[in-house]
């Protein structure tokens, strides 16, 4: 938890990143998934551009295809043939080098038979030298504040800590992009807000591009540079909202800003407008 009594953050505008070429670029992205009645179109005509170092949240009601979109960006799912998706200029065919997924289900993603340290090693083994692996793992664990738990097995850690391990494992491969699928969805409110701040810090230090799927509007506004809202069935991007709140952000100070409340309201309205009700987005 970031202590609210700690140094008040400077509420001046901070450049979010040095934007060069886009990290992700998708054009006319459509996805068909198999269902009992044959192929069903989940996403259609998604045009998305994510700048390097940008934090983009994907919002939408559950079942709209937020995770599907993220899986396509992560190369875990193929879009239709007429879609184009590229990561740093290269078309995405299979998981691209430099983009790592962080799953909501940390318990299923961590290997219970490996220690924390060895879990973080997983993405480095055979790819970098042993000493470098040791160093990178130690750095990644330090970055998420788990340096002292390196030798523990995952079951000894709380849910929030286990999710941190997954984040550390992703960071250890030094990705230029993190694809996060409701990473804090299964955590309690306190753990969630502390991890949100942790993630902000990580992004500040690493300059990673982050595409973040969530259905928590507050979370999306608090963390993002930009929010895209998926709507319809098949879904497409219905709204794009720029979040120009100053960084670094602070759990209390930022959330008390009139601009924050206005944005929160605007995002909420887009979702309520479309469906006449908030659904399970809140």
């Amino acid at each position: 938890m970031a202590s609210p009594l700690r140094s008040r953050p400077e509420l001046t505008s901070v450049p979010t990143s040095d934007v060069t070429g886009p990290a992700y670029e998708s054009h006319n992205l459509s996805v068909d998934l198999d269902s009992s009645e044959g192929a069903r179109r989940i996403l259609t005509g998604v045009d998305l551009e994510v700048a390097q170092g940008e934090f983009v949240s994907v919002l939408g009601r559950s079942g709209t295809g937020k995770t599907t979109l993220l899986r396509v960006l992560g190369g875990l799912l193929d879009p239709t043939a007429d879609s184009t998706v590229s990561f740093r200029g290269e078309p995405v065919e299979g998981p691209p080098e430099g983009a790592v997924f962080v799953f909501q289900n940390y318990a299923a993603s961590l290997l219970p038979w490996r220690t924390i340290e060895r879990n973080v090693d997983l993405g480095l083994e055979g790819k970098v030298s042993k000493p470098e692996m040791r160093q990178r793992t130690a750095e990644a664990l330090a970055l998420v504040g788990l340096a002292d738990r390196a030798k523990d097995y995952p079951w000894r850690l709380s849910g929030g800590m286990q999710q941190r391990v997954q984040l550390a494992r992703a960071l250890a491969v030094r990705p230029s992009a993190l694809l996060m699928d409701e990473p804090f969805g299964a955590l309690d409110a306190m753990t969630k807000s502390s991890l949100q701040d942790e993630l902000q810090r990580v992004q500040e230090r690493t300059g990673a591009t982050i595409v973040f799927v969530t259905h928590d509007i507050d979370e999306a506004v608090y963390l993002s540079d930009r929010i895209v809202v998926l709507e319809g069935s098949p879904a497409t991007i219905g709204h794009r909202i720029d979040v120009d709140l100053p960084r670094p952000r602070h759990q209390l100070a930022t959330k008390e800003l009139p601009a924050f409340l206005k944005l929160r309201r605007a995002v909420y309205d887009t979702i309520v407008d479309v469906h006449g009700q908030a659904g399970d987005v809140a």
Partner: peptide
């Protein structure tokens, strides 16, 4: 087996053999 385990392997670029052996 949770499909997340396989997705994890793919996202971290593990080879087929490593996925079998380690996961």
């Amino acid at each position: 087996l949770d499909p997340v385990l396989l997705d994890t392997a793919r996202s971290l670029h593990l080879s087929w053999f490593d996925t079998m052996r380690k996961l």
